[in-house]
Structures are given as structure tokens and as C-alpha cells.
């Protein structure tokens, strides 16, 4: 399988070409309050392009909230207050006048449970493209084929592209969601425990895909499984009670954790 060459993932080159390999997500003093709960406390971190960053930490420490703040999905929840900056490729996404749909297109989200839209497999992929103004049957068919191939799904579904997407297996659905996200040409992929609902084989396939995809995308992954982080992470962020305790390359954090809490978490003292 030699699909992944530079530029291969973006046959249209309609939006960002990802030419800027130094594009980063920089989070500065991010605070999130939902109701009276202070969920994220003064978060500062940097996420690199063309690498897999794993966010680890015990349940309820704000991992998912942090991830969702990267594509402004938090705002729709009632009584949410967000302060601080999230700078993606030089632009603060929380600045006034920043177009929210553009931000979300740039930051593809892969959620925990696969969530195919209520339409056919073909329409699931072409939906995002149509929204962003790609027209023409030929072009759409090309895009659909391309991204299904990229997600390793083309051979499995090429004969039933027009059947409802929710008839596929769970693992296939998740790969479809990934392909759907890639089809709008994002710069970063935000994965929110994307393998936790899948069987081991399907999650292995997704994991392998991520490793391939990092040649062209920055991948941020929230995970509950330490072993998964050990396998694929280039950078690791450890969070506890809404604070970033430690961040660094995988080697630094796993082999030589500086903070006591990180040591305890990695040794399995709590989870």
C-alpha cells in the first residue's frame, strides 16, 4: 500500500495545502468553566504538526474538553465560559470575527463512537465537500474514492456505496468517519478516544492509519489506554484535574517523568 505520498491526501487542494509544516496549535492560558465547574485551569501547551500527540490522564481530568476547545465545539453547551487563546497556524480561533466553520473544517474531529450521518456511504463523504462548495459528479466521485482508499475502506464498500452508512460494522463506520473528516482537507485531526468503542482489530487498523497519516497531518489523540500512547505517540501531554502536569516528547515523559503524579499514573497507581 503506497497511497501516501506527499500531497496525495489532498487531490483537490481546495483549502489548505498544509504546505506550512511548522503549523502548530498553541494554547495560551486557556480556562474553561462550565456552570460552576472550573474544568480547564490555565492550560498552556504546544502541539506539533506531522506528529501524534497523545493526551493522557485519569477520567474527568478535562482531556476531552481540551480537545473540543480546539474546534470550538464547546460553545454550544449552555453556560460555558472560555478565556485564553488557542492559536492555530498563527490565528487565534477564539478571536472575534474568526469564522467558526472554517476553524472546524481545519480541525477534523473523530469522536469516540462512530457517528455516520443518516445517508449513504457515498453521501457521507461527499457531504462535507458539498458544504464547502465542491460541485460536479465526477469530482465528487473522485474525492469519495480517494478518501475511502485512504481509510482502507474502498475495497470493502465499493459495491455498496449507495447503501445507508449505518449498515456497516462499527469498525468500518469509524473508518468512514475518518475518511469523511479527511475529505474536507483538515490540517489537524482531533481524535477523542476514537478506538475505545472498537474491537482490537479495528482499533489496530485505525492506529496504523494514524501512523501513516502523520506524514501530512498533526494528530491530537485523547486516549485512556497507556499502551496505545506508548505505541504511537510522538509527544505526550499528561493532565490531572484540569491542569497540564507534564508535556514533552514520548521518550521524555515515558522514560523519565519529572513530576510525581506522572510517575504514579504511569506506574498504574491510579487511572
Amino acid at each position: 500500500m503506497d497511497i501516501i505520498k506527499q500531497g496525495m491526501f489532498r487531490p483537490n487542494q481546495k483549502f489548505c495545502t498544509n504546505a506550512n509544516a511548522d503549523a502548530k496549535i498553541e494554547v495560551q492560558d486557556l480556562n474553561v468553566n462550565i456552570g460552576t465547574n472550573h474544568i480547564l485551569k490555565d492550560v498552556n501547551l504546544t502541539i506539533h504538526n506531522q506528529a501524534i500527540t497523545c493526551i493522557i490522564g485519569p477520567s474527568g481530568c478535562g482531556k476531552s474538553t481540551l480537545l473540543r476547545s480546539f474546534n470550538r465545539l464547546l460553545e454550544d453547551t449552555a453556560k460555558t465560559k472560555i478565556t485564553g487563546k488557542v492559536i492555530v497556524d498563527g490565528d487565534d480561533i477564539y478571536e472575534k470575527g474568526c469564522e467558526i466553520t472554517h476553524v472546524r473544517r481545519k480541525m477534523g474531529l473523530l469522536s469516540q463512537k462512530p457517528c455516520p450521518l443518516p445517508m449513504s456511504i457515498f453521501d457521507n463523504i461527499s457531504y462535507g465537500c458539498k458544504i464547502h462548495g465542491i460541485r460536479g459528479k465526477k469530482k465528487l466521485a473522485m474525492v469519495v474514492k480517494h478518501y475511502l482508499e485512504a481509510a482502507g475502506l474502498w475495497n470493502e464498500v465499493k459495491d455498496r456505496l449507495h447503501t445507508p452508512a449505518n449498515r456497516m460494522s462499527l469498525g468500518q463506520q469509524q473508518r468512514l468517519c475518518l475518511a469523511r473528516g479527511l475529505a474536507v482537507e483538515p490540517q489537524f485531526i482531533l481524535a477523542d478516544e476514537s478506538t475505545s468503542a472498537l474491537d482490537p482489530i479495528s482499533s489496530k487498523i485505525i492506529e496504523d492509519l494514524f501512523v501513516k497519516l502523520k506524514a501530512e497531518y498533526g494528530i491530537v489523540m485523547v486516549t485512556h489506554t497507556l499502551r496505545q500512547a506508548l505505541r504511537i505517540a510522538d509527544y505526550v501531554v499528561f493532565m490531572y484535574m484540569g491542569e497540564v502536569i507534564e508535556q514533552g516528547t514520548a521518550e521524555e515523559v515515558f522514560k523519565n517523568p519529572q513530576h510525581e503524579l506522572t510517575q504514579k499514573y504511569l506506574s498504574g497507581a491510579f487511572s
Binding site: 465545539l73 472554517h102 477534523g108 474531529l109 469522536s111 450521518l117 443518516p118 468517519c177 473528516g181 474536507v184
Partner: peptide
């Protein structure tokens, strides 16, 4: 309608109206 469905559509960059028209009404 499950919130995930809306979020799935919106995180592709769809507006609320697009999400309503193409996803929610269909669902």
C-alpha cells in the same frame, strides 16, 4: 436527535442551517 450527530456535521464545518436541513430533518 443525538448531539453527536449534530457535532459530527458541525465539525465538518457545516453551519447550523446546513446541519438542520441535511442531517437532522433526514434523521
Amino acid at each position: 436527535t443525538p448531539a453527536e450527530l449534530r457535532q459530527a456535521s458541525q465539525s465538518l464545518g457545516a453551519t447550523k442551517w446546513q446541519t438542520t436541513k441535511k442531517v437532522m430533518l433526514k434523521h
